[in-house]
Amino acid sequence: MKHALILGSLALALMSGSALADTAGKKIALSNNYAGNSWRQAMLQSWDKVTKEAVAAGVVAAADPFTTAENQATEQAAQIQNLILQGYDAIVVNAASPTAINGAVKEACDAGIIVVSFDGIVDEPCAWRIAVDFAAMGKSEVDYLKTALPNGGKLLEIRGLAGVFVDDEISKGIHAGVAENPQFEIVGSVHGDWAQDVAQKAVAGILPSLPADIVGVVTQGGDGYGAAQAFAAAGRPTPVIIMGNRQDELAWWKEQKDANGYQTMSVSIAPGVSTLAFWVAQQILDGKEVPKDLIVPFLRIDQDNLEANLAATPTGGVANVEYSQADAIAVIDGK
């Protein structure tokens, strides 16, 4: 992460020659629909950190974050309309809905404003999308289990928030992986709402009814520690629980690794993806040709780089990567 930062500032220094000329007077806004969990807080902090440096260096004139209170599409649409009136040149959006704010996004495009959506993307064609291949993320969990548990076995699936696109995608990927690997079987599925306490409650509720030989738990992030707690409370042996990059999950994993050689992996989206969206918006303003659909890599932590990642993650926070202008250019060029 430090590495990326140094690279970033280096790139900044190198790029400022060309970038300064075109975007120094431009204003970028962040329209964010929700701030009520640690991932979103980390996302906002990354935005704050990276854009402040960029503004100080004169790359852009302003990069102001705005968050709606209620996580409602109507509210976010109104917010975007305000941002249009305030004269921003680009709006970076983490959307409450992939479709419901399309009208406002179209208005922004028509007003000549660049709209870049990320994480919660919008399907309005005039906007750019920085998407995560969530299905691939789900499938990568099963791919890992295939090597960790060559004999296969019974799995418990913890899903996210029912009815949300991301939940469906990750689950689809997991089920596709299981279909390819018939040695695995999903014997139970609960919704943990990506929250530790909800996951713990849901797992504790289904666990008594599940067979004793659960070998793995496939998750969506933010629910691994709760699952571990529930298994411990039920007095069951701990299966391979896929983690989701939260610090308490990593700390628990490290504890188990030191105590009994516990092995697993951890995968999630880095909250710093907001900074990637920022740089992409800056590049578009700078006149660069950018494809409308970009894919952001997910952040994966394995047995051997657990310690390094744990050390770099603030206590109680989420493992993170902040992107630099150079990273953004690499993603745009498809490298």
Partner: peptide, 16 residues
């Protein structure tokens, strides 16, 4: 109690 039980307070822990 809930934050002690689940290993820490989370910003969305009361929502349900």
């Amino acid at each position: 109690l809930l934050s002690c039980f689940s290993g820490g307070a989370a910003l969305n822990m009361g929502s349900e």
